[in-house]
């Protein structure tokens, strides 16, 4: 059911990513101070915002999981965190390149957004190990949801607090993101926002579809008697869709 509309969504996503890249390279003006390097901004900032949005969305999905006990919500939350982690690595790399170009260092501590982002990534890096350390899939799902909600709430709070810290009350190096950009840059930025969001959603749907098909295949195999009912299941950090709510 996740496959529905996937083809048209993919086409739109590919088109919008291509359009964005074209706009970034050929239409957006070069920045007065940073020149060409500034264009990494159109990748870095939307990527960061979408990553964080994905983490928060995963927290909301986890709330739905704890409320309904439907393992599909856990799967959705898992895939969202998984994807955002991958996007997040992209954020750290592009941020690092930017920092190197703008300030001459691969890492800067006086940029609160970057520092907050690192903290968030450090926290989410424990998500998979946590899942892997719990064998019973139902408890794994429940604990993962508790984590996803706590961490999801941590994301905005953490950004707020790091910004309030004494080291950062002085003027910021990288101020404001979309507020005072000149016209064309702003248009390209919003375009990049849209295409990055679409990319995240498309990849999420792809992974959900794949997981769903795999689960159905397993169930069919079992019905055909290929797999022994009592075969010890492989220990895994990924949620399974076959327990609890799926029957009945």
């Amino acid at each position: 059911m996740y496959g529905k509309g996937l083809r048209s969504l993919s086409v739109i996503t590919v088109a919008s990513v291509a359009l964005t890249l074209a706009a970034v390279f050929f239409w957006a003006p070069n920045d007065a101070y940073l020149g060409f390097l500034q264009k990494i901004f159109y990748v870095h900032v939307p990527l960061a915002i979408v990553t964080l949005g994905g983490f928060v969305a995963a927290g909301l999905m986890a709330i739905a999981h704890l409320r309904t006990r439907d393992p599909r919500w856990d799967m959705r939350s898992y895939v969202a965190i998984h994807l955002s982690l991958i996007f997040g690595i992209g954020v750290l790399i592009t941020g690092s390149i930017w920092a190197r170009g703008a300030w001459g260092h691969w890492w800067v501590w006086n940029e609160p957004t970057l520092v907050s982002f690192l903290l968030v990534m450090l926290l989410y890096a424990t998500y998979q190990p946590l899942r892997f350390a719990i064998e019973d899939p139902e408890r794994q799902a429940r604990y993962a949801s508790v984590f996803a909600i706590t961490a999801g709430a941590f994301v905005p709070i953490n950004f707020l607090i790091v910004r309030l810290a004494p080291a950062y009350v002085h003027p910021r190096t990288l101020d404001n993101i979309s507020g005072n950009l000149p016209g064309r840059m702003q248009v390209v930025f919003y375009l990049a926002m849209i295409s990055t969001t679409l990319l995240w959603i498309t990849l999420w749907k792809f992974e959900m579809t794949a997981k769903h098909v795999a689960a159905q295949l397993r169930q069919l195999r079992r019905l055909l008697g290929d797999e022994d009912d009592d075969a010890p299941t492989r220990r895994s950090a990924a949620p399974s869709l076959t327990h609890a709510g799926s029957a009945g």
Partner: peptide
């Protein structure tokens, strides 16, 4: 897991 989970949450 205890330290890995709690330390990032304790940074603020």
């Amino acid at each position: 897991l205890g330290p890995m989970l709690s330390l990032p949450l304790l940074v603020p």
